[in-house]
Simulated assay, not measured.
Amino acid sequence: MKRPLFLIIASIAVSLPAVCFAANEEIQVYMDDMSEPGQLGVDVHHNYVPSGDANAPYPGGLAARHQYRLTPEFYYGLTNNLELGLYLLTARASDGTAHFEGEKVRVKYIAPHDADNGAFWGANLEVGRTNLYASPQAWNAELKGIIGYRSGRWTFAMNPNVDWSLSAGGGPVTLDVDGKVAYKVTEKTQIGFETYNELGPLRHLQGWSQNSKTVYLALDHDFGAFDLNAGIGRGVTSDADKWVVKCIIGTHF
């Protein structure tokens, strides 16, 4: 019981307005981490936009500037290679009003591999139903590729992500590519960079200066009872939020 209690206390602490840790409900590069069969885990995603667009992206949507997102993610290990997950999306708008935005479910597969060295790969399929606060389309899906390589203290990973709407008239299929480079400073601490890049419609990819592209200085640390991923992001295109702060706290039961 100590681990879940500590997780809740830590999550509440980083949720306070003075230190809020909107961008997407989850800002992370998917890796090869998996829950053991029969094991339940939870990640609490926090992200906050101190500097971004003050206008709503569409009628009924929430402006990014000063928006804070809190997303609990529950996941369960089915086998050594399969994991199920559930997201509960919430947001606090710049005027202080709180909103529940919907739910998403996922199934993640990671192929057998050496966890310490060499290549790893897998995929994550996500389907969600959200309200207008989160998206103009109610039903959406994403197929996330997971590709990575470890060599000594270095870790490299990439997620090519294909997104599409399951709602009628939902628009084109789009592509974004996320990446991570991390260096192991100690056995429990990594520092590095993460990058999140929207490339536009899959059939007509757009130029580098278009759409949202953000680079994060990131820290990963294993505290034993829980793990932490935190980062400060800087938008590098005009469509991106100028600054984003993110924090993910996770544990297993």
Results as ranks from 00 to 15, higher is better:
His66Ser: 13
Leu166Pro: 06
Leu143Ile: 10
Tyr196Cys: 05
Gly122Trp: 03
Ala134Asp: 12
Val181Asn: 07
Pro172Thr: 07
Thr90Phe: 12
Glu73Val: 10
Gly145Glu: 03
Gly77Val: 01
Pro160Cys: 02
Asp176Arg: 00
Leu125Asp: 04
Glu101Thr: 05
Lys188His: 14
Tyr68Met: 10
Ser151Asn: 10
Asn159Phe: 09
Gly102Gln: 10
Gly192Val: 11
Trp164Thr: 06
Val185His: 06
Val181Pro: 06
Trp139Thr: 04
Asp163Ile: 01
Thr90Cys: 13
Lys104Cys: 08
Ala93Ser: 15
Ala123Lys: 05
Asn161Cys: 00
His113Leu: 09
Ala123Asp: 01
Asn159Trp: 01
Val181Phe: 13
Phe100Gly: 12
Gly77Asp: 10
Thr186Gln: 02
Ala168Met: 00
Val127Asn: 05
Gly128Met: 09
Ser135Pro: 07
Pro160Lys: 02
Ala93His: 14
His66Tyr: 14
Gly148Pro: 05
Asp116Asn: 15
Asp95Trp: 03
Asp114Cys: 02
Gly77Tyr: 08
Gly179Cys: 08
Gly169Leu: 08
Ala98Asp: 15
Lys184Asn: 12
Tyr87Lys: 14
Lys180Val: 02
Tyr75Glu: 07
Thr79Asp: 11
Tyr196Thr: 09
Lys108Glu: 09
Asp114Thr: 03
Tyr75Val: 06
Ala141Phe: 09
Lys184Ile: 01
Pro136Trp: 02
Val181Ser: 01
Asp114Tyr: 03
His113Glu: 13
Leu132Lys: 14
Ser165Leu: 06
Trp139Ser: 07
Glu101Pro: 06
Tyr75Thr: 04
Phe156Ser: 06
Gly85Asp: 13
Ser167Pro: 10
Lys180Glu: 14
Ala157Trp: 04
Gly118Arg: 06
Leu84Pro: 10
Tyr68Glu: 09
Ala182Phe: 08
Leu125Val: 13
Leu78His: 12
Lys180Gly: 00
Val107Gln: 08
Trp121Ile: 01
Asn81Lys: 09
Thr71Trp: 11
Leu89Lys: 13
Thr71Ala: 12
Thr155Arg: 13
Ala134Leu: 10
Leu199Asn: 02
Lys108Gly: 07
Tyr75Ile: 03
Gly192Glu: 11
Asn140Gly: 15
Ser151Glu: 11
Asn140His: 07
Lys188Pro: 02
Glu142Thr: 04
Asp95Met: 10
Ile110Pro: 01
Asp163Leu: 03
Gly169Met: 11
Phe120Ile: 11
Phe120Asn: 11
Gln67Val: 11
Gly118Ala: 07
Ala98Lys: 15
Glu142Trp: 00
Met158Arg: 00
Pro136Lys: 03
Ala157Cys: 11
Leu78Arg: 12
Gly122Lys: 00
Asn159Leu: 08
Lys184Asp: 12
Gly128Ile: 07
Thr97Pro: 05
Val185Glu: 08
Asn131Ser: 05
Ser167Ile: 02
Arg129Ala: 12
Leu84Cys: 11
Leu86Pro: 06
Ala182Asn: 02
Asn80Ser: 14
Arg129Cys: 03
Arg150Leu: 06
Val173Asn: 01
Glu101His: 04
Lys184Val: 00
Ala138Leu: 04
Thr97Ala: 15
Leu88Cys: 12
Val173Ala: 02
Leu143Pro: 00
Gly128Ser: 03
